[in-house]
């Protein structure tokens, strides 16, 4: 591949996720509202993309369309299948946890495998492995109502990871957690991602979190939701939570924040 000739740029591998000119229009009582407008985004195989933007700008809507849980009004969305056709294309970590209260922790984690027809012994073994990895093994047979919010969110994350999808779609997975738990889980996510190198689309409200985790940070504008800017994050990996204290990190944050804050202010003014 590399010796196609000097001067010709190396052909890029086909992106894992292709989103072209996607629009989402909701029919409301006050007429049609455009929630996502002409949104285009490609995500490379093994890339970790973070999306930030003001509240209500259509991040969750975009993610649901990616996951095939909502229809798009126009444009195209494509997730490239991998070599193994039995693998699911995507698994979502929902903003509201969506851990099933009627299943135990381990049944929740094994749910995707169960739906794909994986045998009981095997799926429980996989689930057990993931529970062990995030320190929840003791709680395997608890019901979600018996564990804390932070634990529930970990269950929701490893339910997606145990399903071993082609791409992982996370909607503010750490949004509802307290600051300490959040840092612990950020470190956990970094560690797990560095081992698995999955393709990830990660929505967050925290710019720090986006820069810490992502290979790229995408800014979204509100009303309607559009792509505003895309910043490559070239901080070397492996990263840890301490990476947030480096000057390179601060510099990137400063550059992105000036644009983001302008957009957030604009969105707030438009809502008023």
């Amino acid at each position: 591949m590399a010796d196609h000739g000097v001067g010709i740029s190396r052909p890029k591998p086909a992106p894992k996720i292709e989103t072209r000119n996607v629009c989402k229009i909701y029919d409301t009582v006050s007429g049609p509202t455009t929630v996502v407008d002409d949104f285009s985004l490609d995500v490379a195989d093994g890339e970790f993309v973070c999306i930030v933007g003001p509240s209500g700008c259509g991040k969750s809507t975009y993610l649901r369309m990616l996951a095939g849980l909502d229809t798009h009004s126009s444009g195209s969305i494509y997730i490239r299948p991998g070599d193994d056709p039995t693998k699911p294309l995507n698994s979502v970590v929902f903003q509201e946890y969506a851990v099933f209260p009627w299943k135990t922790v381990i049944e929740n984690v094994a749910f995707g495998l169960q739906m794909r027809g994986v045998g009981k012994a095997e799926r429980l073994q996989v689930a057990d492995h993931w529970l062990e990895r995030v320190g929840l093994r003791k709680f395997a047979h608890y019901y979600p109502s018996e564990i804390s919010g932070g634990m529930k969110q970990r269950v929701s994350i490893i339910r997606a990871l145990a399903n071993d999808p082609e791409v992982l779609l996370m909607d503010e997975p750490l949004g509802a957690l307290d600051a300490q738990t959040r840092i612990v889980l950020q470190a956990e996510l970094l560690r797990i991602w560095q081992e698995t190198r999955k393709t990830v689309v990660f929505i967050t409200h925290s710019l720090d979190e986006a820069i810490l985790l992502g290979d790229r940070v995408v800014l979204m504008a509100a009303h309607p939701g559009r792509l505003l800017a895309s910043f490559p994050i070239d901080i070397a990996r492996p990263r840890t939570v301490e990476t947030m204290n480096t000057p390179q990190f601060a510099e990137l944050r400063g550059a992105i924040w000036s644009q983001l804050s302008r957009e957030v202010t604009r969105a707030m003014e438009m809502q008023a």
Partner: peptide, 29 residues
Amino acid sequence: IDPVFLMAGRNYGARGVSLLRHVIIPAAM
């Protein structure tokens, strides 16, 4: 039923009878 449970069920591959058995019935119980 909270729609997010139905979305989670579908996203993890539950369809038809399995969606009924694993999500809808227990959620409405």
